[in-house]
Computed example of a mutant assay.
Amino acid sequence: MSAADGVTGGLLASELRLIVTRRRNIVGLTVLCVLPIVLGVVMRVYGPTGDGPPFLAGLTGNGLFLVLATLAVEMTVFLPMAVCILAGDTVAGEAGLGTLRYLLVVPVSRRRLLAVKFAALLIAAAIGVVAVATTAGVTGVALFGAGDLVTLSGGALGFWPALGRVALIAGYVTACLAAVAAIGLFASTLTEQPVGAAVGAFGWLVVDQVLGGIGAVDWLHPFLLSTYWSDWAGLLRDPVDVTGVLGGLISPAVYTVVFATAAWARFTTADVTS
Rank of each mutant, 00 (worst) to 15 (best):
A119M: 07
A119I: 04
A120Q: 09
I123Q: 05
I123N: 01
A125V: 01
A126Q: 04
I127E: 12
I127T: 13
V130Y: 04
V130Q: 10
A131Y: 07
A133S: 14
A133C: 07
T134Y: 02
T134M: 13
T135A: 08
A136T: 12
A136E: 03
G137E: 08
G140Y: 01
V141P: 04
A142W: 11
A142R: 07
A142M: 15
L143Q: 11
F144M: 09
G145H: 12
A146D: 09
G147V: 05
V150L: 09
T151E: 11
T151C: 05
T151G: 13
L152Q: 07
S153I: 02
G154I: 11
G155E: 15
G155I: 04
A156N: 05
A156D: 14
A156I: 00
A156V: 13
L157D: 11
G158S: 09
G158W: 04
F159L: 13
W160F: 15
P161V: 09
A162K: 05
A162E: 12
A162C: 06
G164H: 14
G164P: 10
R165D: 08
R165K: 13
L168E: 15
L168A: 15
I169A: 10
A170G: 12
A170S: 15
A170K: 08
G171T: 11
V173M: 06
V173S: 06
T174K: 05
T174D: 11
C176S: 10
A179D: 00
A179R: 00
V180H: 09
V180I: 15
I183S: 02
I183R: 01
G184D: 01
G184W: 01
L185G: 00
F186W: 01
F186R: 01
S188T: 06
S188L: 05
S188P: 09
T189A: 06
